[in-house]
Amino acid sequence: MIAENIKKVRENIEETCKKVGRDSKEVTLICVSKTKPESDIIEAYNVGERNFGENKVQEMCEKHDDLNDDIRWHMIGHLQRNKVKYLTDSAYLIHSVDSKRLLEQIEKEYEKAGKEAHVLLEINVALEDSKFGYTCESVIEDLPFIETLKHVKVVGLMTVAPYTDNPEDNRKYFRKLKELSVDIESKKYNNISMDELSMGMTGDYMIAIEEGATLVRVGTGIFGNRNYNV
């Protein structure tokens, strides 16, 4: 079932890219494996998937230690500052950087580890009270500070759009994130690129691709519904 689901998602990505004149190689599928057993990840791995997303640091680190070295682990959940130190060996990309204080902690821990963190700045485009993230305005204030960091490289933006039964409702948020990335890119900050846009999940990833997503985070559409009581 997982392999079949991945095939369908891949076909959707291909068709959507063709529709808007994009190369499907520009879009990376992240299989969101949070709460799912390692056997599910292995099934996805065996049909060629290498990018997996986790919400919790401990779960990601355990899976990183148990599974193949060529898997790229994406930290997509809210990140507490006291957990950053555990990511230096496991995180390929941190999607959910939502404050200056978190940036300072990442800089501190990656300096200790002698490594460079690749991160995305999380933007709460829809201004939902239940979501973390910078606003489109507040993120601009921290960009000069980010230029000074030696061990953190910002490579783009991320957003979690509202849950909706109609994916078309989220088009305006994806478009706004893309516009923000173009604006930031035009200012040519050192240490900041806008190569990646992480937006779109199971319900709306095709709309996100139409609006410029380079990373789509698909969980339920690949692994099925989650049991959070496990």
Rank of each mutant, 00 (worst) to 15 (best):
M1Q: 12
K7W: 14
V9D: 10
E14D: 13
E15K: 14
E15T: 15
C17L: 06
V20I: 10
D23F: 00
L29M: 11
I30M: 10
I30R: 01
C31H: 02
V32A: 01
K34H: 07
K34L: 10
K36Y: 12
S39H: 04
I41K: 05
I41M: 02
E43A: 12
A44G: 01
Y45Q: 09
V47L: 08
R50D: 07
N55A: 02
K56Q: 10
M60R: 01
M60C: 04
C61P: 02
D66P: 01
D66G: 01
L79F: 06
N82F: 09
T88I: 15
Y92M: 02
H95I: 01
H95P: 01
D98L: 11
D98A: 12
K100E: 15
R101Y: 15
L103R: 07
L103Q: 04
E104I: 06
K108W: 09
E109I: 01
L120C: 02
L120F: 12
L121G: 00
E122W: 11
V125T: 08
A126G: 05
L127A: 13
L127N: 15
D129P: 11
S130V: 13
K131C: 05
F132C: 02
G133T: 05
S138G: 03
E141V: 10
D142K: 11
F145Y: 15
T148F: 04
L149W: 03
K150H: 07
H151V: 06
K153S: 01
K153P: 08
L157Q: 09
M158C: 11
M158P: 06
P162D: 10
T164F: 11
D165H: 04
N166Q: 07
D169L: 08
R171T: 06
E179K: 08
S181M: 09
V182K: 14
E185K: 15
S186K: 14
N190A: 15
S193N: 03
D195V: 12
S198P: 04
M199V: 03
G200H: 05
G203L: 04
G203A: 12
E211C: 08
A213M: 02
T214Y: 04
G221C: 12
N225Y: 13
N227L: 13
Y228T: 13
N229E: 13
N229M: 12
